[in-house]
Design a binder for these strands. Structure first.
Ligand SMILES: [Zn+2]
Ligand SMILES: [Zn+2]
Ligand SMILES: [Zn+2]
Ligand SMILES: [Zn+2]
Lengths: 157, 157
DNA sequence: GGCGCTGATGTTATAACGTATCAAACATCT
DNA sequence: AGATGTTTGATACGTTATAACATCAGCGCC
C-alpha cells in the first residue's frame, strides 16, 4: 500500500485549483492534466513521459506544452523538480510553501518529502563558516526506500 | 595535514597521475587535459565547454572524448559531477575518497567542498525514520559564496 | 460591437546535454 | 608475431530544454 491518504485525485485537483485561485492564477486544463499525471504516478516522472501521455489525447502537444505546465506547477508549489534526475514530482503539501529534503529511491523512483529544521540549521551553520549563504532549495538525497530494501527489487546503483 | 595548497597545476597533475598509477590506471593525455581544464577553472565547468576548449587544440574531438574522460575522472575521485548543474569540478582531495557537501555559488559557480559527519548522521537518521537508507553521495547546496555576497556581483537567482 | 490589453496556447525550430556503436590504434604479455 | 584488453576516433542517435513568433481566448472599456 503506497499511502493511506483519503484524498482522491479529484479532491487533490480541486484543492490545487483553489490554491491557484487564491494566488490569482488559474489551473488551466493543460496544467490540470499534467498535475493529474504527476499525482497519479507512483514516483517522479520525466517531462517527455508526461508529453507522451498527453499526446495520447492530444497528438499536437509539443515540448513547450508540458514544460510550460511544469514551470507553472513548480512556481505555484504544486510540484517539485528533482534537478539531479531531470524529473518532476507532485507536492503533497502545497498549501505550506516549503523546501525540504527529498528522499529519492534509486530503484522505484518514489520520493518521500520531509523537512528537518535541525538539519537545515546545521547546514546553514556549516556554510556560514565559509561565508556561504544557503539559498532556499530542496536537498536531494538518493538511496533505497523501505519497500525496495526488503528485496522487492534488485541491486542498487 | 593533507596538503598545504602551494600546489601548482603541474604538481596537481603529477599527483593525480601517481594516484591513478596506484589504482592500476593511467592518466592518459586526454584525461590529463580535461583534468587540467577543471583544475584551472575557477569553478565548475560544463562538459561542452570542456569540449570546446579541447577542440581548439584538437578539432576532431567529439562529445564522447570529453564524457569518457569525465567518467574516468569521477570514478577515480579526481573530479565530482554536480548533478543539479550538469557540471563538473575538480576534487581538491582525491587521495581521501569521500562524499561531502558541495556549496555551489549561484553567481560565480565556484564550489566549496566540505564534510560534516554530524550533518550526514542527522540525515541518515531522518531517512531511517521512513525506512529509507541513504546511499553514499554528494549533497549539493546552492547559495552565494562569500565573495559574491559582498556586492561583487548582482542579484541571486 | 470594436479595441486593446493580458495571459495562455500552438507551432516550428533549435540549443544543450548525453550515449550507443563499431572500428582503429595502442599497449602488454607470451 | 599473435592474443588480449584498453583507449581513442568517428558517426550517429537519443534525451532534455528553450527560443521565437504567431494565434487565440478572456476581459475591461468606450
Ligand atoms: Zn513539497
Ligand atoms: Zn523504492
Ligand atoms: Zn572531493
Ligand atoms: Zn560566488
Amino acid at each position: 500500500m503506497p499511502h493511506a491518504h483519503t484524498h482522491s485525485l479529484e479532491d487533490n485537483l480541486s484543492a490545487a485549483a483553489q490554491w491557484c485561485a487564491k494566488r490569482g492564477e488559474k489551473l488551466t486544463e493543460q496544467r490540470r492534466e499534467v498535475l493529474a499525471l504527476l499525482l497519479s504516478a507512483p514516483g517522479s516522472v520525466k517531462a517527455y513521459d508526461l508529453l507522451a501521455a498527453i499526446q495520447k489525447q492530444k497528438p499536437t502537444a509539443a515540448p513547450p506544452t508540458v514544460y510550460r505546465a511544469l514551470d507553472f506547477l513548480v512556481a505555484a508549489g504544486l510540484a517539485h523538480k528533482l534537478e539531479s534526475k531531470n524529473a518532476f514530482v507532485a507536492c503533497c503539501d502545497f498549501e505550506h510553501p516549503h523546501h525540504g529534503v527529498m528522499l529519492i529511491c534509486n530503484q522505484c523512483h518514489t520520493v518521500k518529502e520531509l523537512t528537518d529544521p535541525v538539519l537545515e540549521a546545521r547546514l546553514a551553520e556549516d556554510a556560514k563558516a565559509w561565508g556561504f549563504s544557503v539559498a532556499p532549495q530542496d536537498i536531494e538525497v538518493k538511496g533505497l526506500c523501505a519497500n525496495c530494501r526488503h528485496g522487492d527489487g534488485e541491486a542498487q546503483a
